[in-house]
Amino acid sequence: MNDLQLTLLIVGGGGIAAMIAYNWWQDYRLRKQASERFGETDQDPLLNTGSVKSGFERTEPGFSGSQDFAPSTEFDESSLEASFDAPQNDSHLQNEPQMTIDKRLFADFIIRFDEEKDANTWKTLVDGLEQINRKRIIYSASPDTAESAEILWFKASPYSGTAKSLKASVQIANRKGPLSSIEFSEVLGKFKRFAEDQNADIEFPEMKEVVAKAETLDQAAAALDTLLGLHCLLPETVQESTAVDMLAVAGWVQKGHQWFLSDESGTLASMVIHNAPGKRLLSFSIDVPNSAEPIKALGDIVTVCHGMNEKFGAPLMDDSGRTLSTQAIEGIYNQLIERVRNLTDSGFKPGAPVARILFS
């Protein structure tokens, strides 16, 4: 072996050793970052469930198929209740306290002014950036510098008096999907420009952490999301006015081309009448996470359709057009009860503010 071969061998061996050492260092560094962010457990960092499969795809809500989901109590409806216990300055008593923002649903961007500002300062920003891809942005103002966790925030619009801090809470997930890095960058760019114009400082979270959290939340929500559709097929000989009268007696109220079943908590279910040659279809829908009483709504739908079936021979069908037997309806009840239980145990009680925000 001559000197050239020996030199090449040493150089090649050194290069391989350096590559192995670099790869080991990269693996160690990434594992350390993951450990610091999520801890040493294999549990999901947001919902304490098993790790989500990487091939998970968001699907339309429904009862077809099944998805395993270990419920969590981390989402707490009470976290959305407004807090009035903090001391208030007399000059701000006329302002409305902001509800406590659930940090698991929102990412906070805080702008601190060098000097006190009034509502005209942020009016253009608030009016022009109310949402990003249907995800809400909630603005709060405070006469304090927002350096304490116990600071009392007021709704930024309308707002009387002056403020030293403005907070923008950006929703990180809804039915449109998770907050993406592009959406994060877009809102951050606008907040930064506003802060620069006002000679203010801005505090914002790490984009990668927010996006990862949003994706985890979105996958968990997709596993819980449920939209139940049922249909009552009326013969064409039955006048629409006759069906309308029966719906009104059962408590359904018409608004535009839709009908709604509601109570003091809000909408429980909706219905649309489709007219086609030879038949008239009443299509009922229960948006389970947004309905305060989805099980009651199902019972009311079954009752009104049973009455129409007895009187006109109008069968109750599922989305596939199959006539539902008593046993099938009982199966739907059981599945719905299970979905409601999973939502409630996870902190997304159907009809609660936290559920209506996430499943908007």
Rank of each mutant, 00 (worst) to 15 (best):
M1T: 15
G14T: 02
G14K: 00
G14F: 01
Y28N: 15
A34K: 06
G65E: 12
Q67N: 09
F75Q: 11
F75G: 05
S79W: 14
A86V: 14
P87N: 03
S91L: 14
H92V: 00
H92I: 13
I101E: 11
I101F: 08
K123V: 04
Q131M: 10
N133W: 08
S140T: 10
P143E: 03
A146C: 04
S157F: 07
A163E: 06
K167F: 01
I172Q: 02
A173K: 05
N174M: 06
N174V: 08
G177Q: 01
F194E: 06
E203V: 11
P205G: 01
K208P: 06
E209C: 06
A212K: 04
T216S: 15
A223D: 14
L227H: 12
H231R: 13
C232A: 02
L233W: 08
T237V: 02
V238F: 00
E240I: 12
S241R: 15
V249P: 03
W252I: 00
G256C: 02
L261K: 03
L268Y: 01
M271H: 11
N275T: 14
G278T: 02
K279G: 07
F284R: 01
I286M: 03
K296W: 07
C305R: 06
N309V: 02
K311L: 06
L316R: 09
M317R: 04
T326F: 02
A328R: 02
Y333W: 06
Q335T: 00
L343N: 09
A352N: 05
A355H: 04
